[in-house]
Every structure is written in structure tokens, then in C-alpha cells.
Nucleic acid binder design. Structure first.
Lengths: 204, 204
DNA sequence: CAATATAAGTTTACAGGGTAAATTAAAGGA
DNA sequence: TCCTTTAATTTACCCTGTAAACTTATATTG
């Protein structure tokens, strides 16, 4: 049905395609998310997606962007719901771990090292930055309250590294004995925040 | 020249092939390490590698295993050269970061989440375990010396997570402003060890 | 020494991948 | 009505990984 195709329709198609990609990814693994499989999932010919995305990398970037979007929303909600810097940090940490464990495939893809550099995908950069800003805000709160001493940016990086590193090693099966996921969610990583914020940690 | 082919010759071919794979990986990216490219790099026909490896995943597993081998050797050297638990942990941490920054491609591949599960590759499991054991030994030292309180396994996981998370976020370009690599090597991450071991950190 | 078995290596072939180019079909404006 | 525009499909190409058949050269055996 040529002629036109409103921005809303374009957006709708892109969303449907991203959703299909996420489903394929989650249900049949990374090697199953192929142009042709995506096409059949949408009941469309193999070349149709190219009207809406530059190429396959562009599609995967959109999927990652949508993941970061939902991720940022979850972190923001936790941030706003808690009050007091320490409580906020703990809540954000819980939300972070919760998201990763509830959406392991999305989280994997979002931080996959073999993915092309995100700099070429503005939407992805924006969504990614949104999540990073919450991490920075939470860390700044800890520093301003005197719970941790040091550069807020560095503190943010450290806490993020601790969370991400633990999750990624767990998801990769490198930790042995493996960590009980429910223990993770309950707050094994809170130990780091509490440990550092507990008194006088100085990061420089 | 059929008949025979000593174990040493087999090992030599496998090593040459792994080396070629690492070079392709480092010089032209992951998508360039293809069976046919590997074959031309060795001056051999495309099917010849299949005499020495089950399939492509088997080759990549061997490359990862050799990476973990060199990684473990570096950590062990640092571990032995230092004396005193804190010094040992700091030395191992420095060696860890040094290896990752000097061999970013190897490190990426070793911890790539989209790689098939390592459980199917005994050599990889062994090499991986060797590295993990050093991390565990170093953490146990900290706990036994009373520098950190808690389960040594958990302490090991936490420190490993902090190191790995920071490196991986850095390699993925997620940290902004990016960390100066030389600062990383000089010991930005020592802050975590020192912070935790500084006095009375309790991890549980 | 000649014949054969065996194993290293190559050639050929195929299914499935991403995507460029040509083609078709449907709708709005003249 | 016809023509332009554009969504969508069809076709085609080259590149993957790898199975199967074939070639070639030695080591063993008669």
C-alpha cells in the first residue's frame, strides 16, 4: 500500500521488528536473529526491513537502545522512590541487579563487547547516557553526603564496575561456586556500597 | 606427506593456527577471522584446519585457552614475586590490569559473552581455572591476614568483579570521561583493594 | 621391489547468511 | 486518465561454515 507511511507507522514497524529480534534472541540464541528469520517473524519479505533500518547492525543498535531505555527507566524509578543518599544508592543497585537478572539476554546484548562501537548510533548513545547519568547522580549523592570521599565520577565508575563485573562474570559462568541469583538480588553487591560507604572510604 | 604426523607436529600446526587467528582478530576485527582467511594465512586449503580442530568454535576455544594460559602465567608471576598478603593482592591486581590493557583483543575474546559455553572445552576450563585459582589465593591471603573479613570465595568474586567490570566498561567505551589507561595501570583499581582492606571491611 | 592400505590434504558442492539491483504494485496529483 | 512516487518483493551475488568425494604420497606388507 504505497504512498505516505506516517512517522507513526514507521516507528510502529521499527518497534515490531525490535520486539521480534528480542524474542528470537531470547528464545533461540544470538545466531537465530537473522534478517530472513526476522522477516518471517513479521510476515514480510527478507528485504523489507532495509526500508526501516540501514543494515543489521542498525537493527541490533536499536534493540540495544531500547534495552538501555527500559534499563534507565528502572533505575530512575528506584532513584526517585528512595530518599536519602545511601538509600538511593542501595535502591539503584538493587534495581540494576534486578534488571540484569530479569532480562539477561537484553543485558548481555547491551554490553556485548563484540558489538560495533555505539558512537555511530545516536539513539543508543542517548539511551546509554541516560542510564549512566543515574549512576553518576547516585554516586554524587554519596560523595556530597560525605559517605564516600573522592571524585564523584570515579566513585560512580567504581560502583558501576563492581555491579557490572559481578553480573557479567556470573552470566558468563566464570564464578565458581556460582552465586545464587536470589542472593545477588537480595544484595550481595550491597556489601560493596555499604563497605565503601560504611565509613571513610577514600577513592582517588 | 601422509602417514604419521607426530603429536609435536599436530601441536605445532594448532599453535600456528591459533597465532594466525589472534593476529587476524587484532588486526582486522572479529568478523575477519574466518576459516578461509585462516587458511590463506597458513598457506593451506580451506578444509585443512578441520583435520586439527572439530570446527570453528573449537578454534576460538583454543585461542581463548591460550589467552587464559598467558593470563594465568602473568598472574602467577606477580603472585610469587610479591611478599605479604596485601602486596600480593596489589601485585596481582596490577598484573591483571596490565595484561588486559596490553592484550585488549585477547581479553575481550576471553570474556566475550556471546562465545559458546566453555564447559565443552576441557583445555579452556583448565586454563580458566588456573587464573581463577590465583584470584582465590590472593583473596584468601587478605582474609587470613585479617585485612578483610568474610568468605574468601566471596571476597575473591568481589575483587575480580571490580577489576573485570572496570576493564570491560572501559574497553566498551561506556565510561565517560574515559579513564586514562596509564592511570588504570598505575592503580586506580588499587583504590578498591586498599579501600576494602584499608580497615575492617566486612563482606558477607 | 611391487602392491596395497592409510592418512594428509585438496576440490567440489551445498545450505544459509547479508544485501545490491532490478522489478512489481499501489496510491495521489495532474 | 495517466504519470509519478514509493512500499514491497523478487532475483541475484558473494561470502560463510562445513560435508563428501577425490587426490596424493608415504609405510607397511606380500
Amino acid at each position: 500500500m504505497p504512498r505516505a507511511l506516517s512517522p507513526a507507522e514507521v516507528e510502529a514497524f521499527r518497534d515490531r521488528l525490535c520486539a521480534a529480534a528480542e524474542r528470537l534472541f531470547a528464545e533461540h540464541g544470538p545466531q537465530a536473529v537473522t534478517m530472513r528469520q526476522l522477516a518471517v517473524a513479521l510476515g514480510v519479505s527478507p528485504m523489507t526491513p532495509y526500508r526501516y533500518f540501514r543494515d543489521k547492525d542498525d537493527i541490533l543498535a536499536a534493540v540495544r537502545a531500547s534495552g538501555f531505555e527500559r534499563f534507565a527507566i528502572a533505575l530512575e524509578a528506584a532513584y526517585r522512590a528512595a530518599d536519602g543518599p545511601l538509600e538511593r544508592s542501595l535502591a539503584v543497585g538493587r534495581a540494576y541487579v534486578g534488571f540484569a537478572l530479569k532480562n539477561p539476554d537484553a543485558y548481555r546484548l547491551m554490553f556485548d563487547l563484540s558489538q560495533p562501537n555505539e558512537a555511530d548510533y545516536p539513539d543508543l548513545v542517548a539511551a546509554s547516557r541516560r542510564a549512566r547519568d543515574i549512576m553518576a547522580g547516585q554516586a554524587t549523592g554519596l560523595v556530597e553526603a560525605g559517605l564516600i570521599e573522592g571524585d564523584p565520577v570515579l566513585v560512580s565508575h567504581m560502583l558501576w564496575a563492581a555491579l557490572h563485573g559481578g553480573l557479567v562474570l556470573q552470566l558468563a559462568g566464570k564464578l565458581s561456586p556460582a552465586i545464587d541469583p536470589s542472593a545477588l538480588r537480595r544484595g550481595a553487591f550491597e556489601a560493596i556500597i555499604r563497605g565503601l560507604a560504611g565509613r571513610g572510604a577514600v577513592l582517588s
